[in-house]
């Protein structure tokens, strides 16, 4: 071990990170090198001086510092728990937010109009509307689906598709013939499912 290396090893010794076999090597070097012996002695002494200079607590903090610190703290925010959750799950939060906005807009469209609405495809002119009642007259045939919102449907004739009534109901005459399904939807949620299903059907159909 040369002197250069010995100095490096000394510092590791002072760091208390020197392996036993390295320490033996250092001792061997020191035995034959007064300069390095002296250097280690002064380094050890310097360390002692630093410790002694740092140990003194003559710089005391003002006695009222803890109180001032505690008084300066802002009031804890109320929504801590969910704020923490939000911070940890940003993707889920974004998804939830999106879903909420979408739901809001669905509900808004659902709530908005309480007027009678009829969707009947190309055969809409065959329907008769009396007040809030949509009538498929006897002997008439609606070839597609019939969707009515906020009204009653009276089927005297024939519907080749599905009949769906939102916030209303279906009256069937004995002469009524409906090839598809009859569905009555009363709640917003159902309306949503219906919309989503219709959309999915369309999607599947278009493939």
């Amino acid at each position: 071990m040369d002197c250069r290396m010995a100095v490096r090893v000394m510092h590791e010794y002072l760091d208390r990170e020197l392996a036993r076999d390295r320490l033996a090597e250092l001792e061997t070097h020191l035995r034959g090198c007064p300069a390095c012996r002296n250097r280690l002695e002064i380094l050890t002494g310097t360390e002692a001086l630093i410790r002694s200079a740092c140990a003194g607590r003559e710089a005391l903090p003002p006695a009222d510092l803890p109180d001032r610190i505690l008084r300066s703290l802002p009031a804890p925010p109320r929504s801590r728990k969910w704020a923490r959750w939000v911070r940890r799950h940003p993707a889920v939060t974004a998804a939830c937010f999106f879903a909420l906005v979408m739901l809001g807009s669905w509900l808004a469209t659902w709530n908005q109009d309480d007027r009678l609405r009829v969707e009947a495809g190309p055969d809409a002119d065959r329907l008769v509307i009396e007040g809030n009642t949509v009538i498929v007259p006897a002997g008439q045939k609606v070839s597609g689906d019939l969707v009515v919102a906020n009204g009653t449907v009276r089927v005297d004739g024939e519907v080749e598709g599905n009949v769906t009534v939102i916030d209303g109901h279906v009256l069937l005459a004995s002469s009524a013939q409906i090839a598809g399904e009859i569905q009555e939807i009363d709640r917003a949620v159902d309306w949503l499912f219906f919309r989503i299903n219709a959309w999915l059907d369309k999607l599947m159909g278009s493939r």
């Binding site: 510092h11 002072l14 250097r39 002064i42 380094l43 002494g45 310097t46 360390e47 002692a48 001086l49 630093i50």
Partner: peptide, 13 residues
């Protein structure tokens, strides 16, 4: 840092 301190104050030891 230790070497620096040795040069600065080592003689006081």
């Amino acid at each position: 840092a230790r070497e620096y301190m040795r040069r600065k104050v080592g003689h006081l030891f």
